[in-house]
Design a protein around this nucleic acid. Structure first.
Lengths: 232, 232
DNA sequence: GAGTGGTCTAGACCACAAT
DNA sequence: TTGTGGTCTAGACCACTCC
C-alpha cells in the first residue's frame, strides 16, 4: 500500500468517524482550520477533502455556519440502461436499424393480460434489428398499445427508434424491467447471427403512459457482444 | 447575473468548446499552465476546474501526458440490484451459503491492474455458493483488498455474507457494474448444478472504499433460475 | 530533459451565519 | 464581532510520459 495523498487520509478519517458513529447525522464536524492543525496540513488540503465529501453527499456545508454529516445514503445500488441507438452513436459507431415486421392485431389473451386491458383492444407489433457497424447487436420485439400511439404504424423507423417515438408520443409514467440470460428461439438467433444454444442477454421492458401500459418490449442481445454497465 | 467563480468560468469555457466541436473526443486540451495564462489565473484554479471536469467524466487526464476529451455518455433509466441474501429472505425462503474456498495470495499482474494497485499487495479470495431452499442460486467469486478488510479470512460466512462484512468493515464510496450473459466454466457450472452450455447471468461488481478498490466480485446465476428486475 | 498533471503550502480576501 | 466556508494566489516538489 503506497502512501495516500493527505486529502485522502483526511477523507478516510472523516468517513471512518461517521461510519463508526463518532459523528451522527446532522451533527457538526470540526472546522477546516481545526482539522488543518490536527492533521498538520494546510487549510486548502482540508478544503479539498471536505469539498469532495460534499460532492459525494457525505457531508453538507453551510457557509458561515459549518460542516454537517448528511443524511445516510441510499443503500440500493443502481445500474443504468441506456438507449441502444444513443449508446452506439456515443461510441462513435454507426447505428442502423432494419424493420423486419410491422403489423396490427387484436390482443391475444396473453397480451391482454400483460397490457392489463379489459377488452381485446388493438395492438401494434414491430420487430426491429439494430446494427452497430453492420453487426446485429439487438433484436427488439415490441408490442404497442394503439390507444397510446395511434400513429405507430406510420413511423419511419430508420430515422427514429421505436423508443424515441414512444417517448415523443406520450409522457412516460413508469417503467418495469427484467434482465435474464437465456438461449434465443430460432428466428431471433438467426437475426442476431448466432446459434440457438448461445447465451442471450435479454431485457424485458414494460412502459406506462396515461395510466395504462403503453408498450411491452423484449430486447435480445448476443451474450458475447453486449453487456449492461453502470455505477455511482 | 452574479459573477461566477473563476474555476466555473473556465469549466464553462471548456464545456462550450467541446459542445461546439472545437475539441472533439479524444483530442487534447491545452495544458494547465497555458490555460492559467490565457485566463489570467493561478494554475491551482485551472487545476480545480479540470479536476471537476474529470470527476464529471467530461475529460480524461493522464499524468505526464495531458488532458483529453472523454467519450460522451447518456443515461435513461435504472435497474436496482439487491443483496442476494435479503432478496431470498424477502421472498420468505431460506438463505444458506457454503464456503467453497478461502485463501490469501499476492496479486497477479491481472489482479494488480484490476485493483489499481501500484505494488503486488496481498489479496484475499473467497468462493461462496448461495442457496435458496437448498437450490444453488448464486456462485460468488470474490477478491478482497487485504488492506481494506484485514480480518476477512476470520469471518464466519455462514452468519454474514461477504458483502455485508465489507459494508461493515469500511464505508462504501462507489460501485461499478457489468452484467452479461455467458456460459459458465466447468467448476462454476458444477456448483450451480447446471451444464456447461447453459446460459448464466453474470454480474461483475467492483466496490471502492478509502480511496482504493476494496473488492472485485463475479456473481454467477443460472439463467433459468435468476433474473434482475426493477423499475420506477 | 522537457512537459504534463498530482499534490501541497501559507498566506489572502470575501460572503455569510451566529452572537 | 467572530468564526465559518468559498475562493484564489504564486510559488513548490514530485511522478509520470514522451521524445
Amino acid at each position: 500500500m503506497t502512501t495516500l495523498p493527505a486529502y485522502q487520509n483526511i477523507k478516510n478519517h472523516i468517513l471512518n468517524a461517521i461510519h463508526n458513529g463518532v459523528w451522527k447525522e446532522g451533527e457538526a464536524i470540526p472546522a477546516e482550520m481545526q482539522l488543518a492543525k490536527q492533521f498538520g496540513v494546510s487549510r486548502m488540503t482540508v478544503n479539498r477533502a471536505m469539498r469532495e465529501l460534499t460532492a459525494e453527499q457525505i457531508v453538507i456545508r453551510i457557509q458561515g455556519s459549518g460542516t454537517y454529516v448528511a443524511q445516510q445514503k441510499y443503500q440500493t445500488t443502481l445500474v443504468e440502461i441506456k438507449s441502444i441507438a444513443d449508446e452506439i452513436r456515443a461510441r462513435g459507431h454507426i447505428h442502423r436499424s432494419e424493420l423486419q415486421e410491422l403489423s396490427q392485431s387484436k390482443a391475444s389473451d396473453t397480451l391482454k393480460a400483460l397490457f392489463e386491458l379489459k377488452t381485446k383492444s388493438t395492438l401494434y407489433h414491430s420487430l426491429i434489428v439494430h446494427f452497430e457497424n453492420d453487426t446485429p447487436i439487438q433484436v427488439e420485439d415490441r408490442w404497442v398499445n394503439a390507444a397510446i400511439a395511434p400513429d405507430y404504424l406510420k413511423q419511419d423507423f430508420s430515422g427514429i427508434t421505436a423508443n424515441e417515438y414512444l417517448m415523443m408520443a406520450a409522457p412516460l409514467q413508469g417503467v418495469d424491467y427484467q434482465i435474464e440470460a437465456i438461449t434465443a428461439p430460432e428466428h431471433i438467433a438467426a437475426l442476431l447471427h448466432i446459434s440457438t444454444h448461445e447465451p442471450c442477454l435479454v431485457l424485458h421492458r414494460k412502459t406506462r403512459s396515461m395510466g395504462c401500459v403503453a408498450s411491452i418490449a423484449t430486447m435480445w442481445h448476443a451474450g458475447t457482444r453486449y453487456r449492461f454497465s453502470g455505477g455511482f
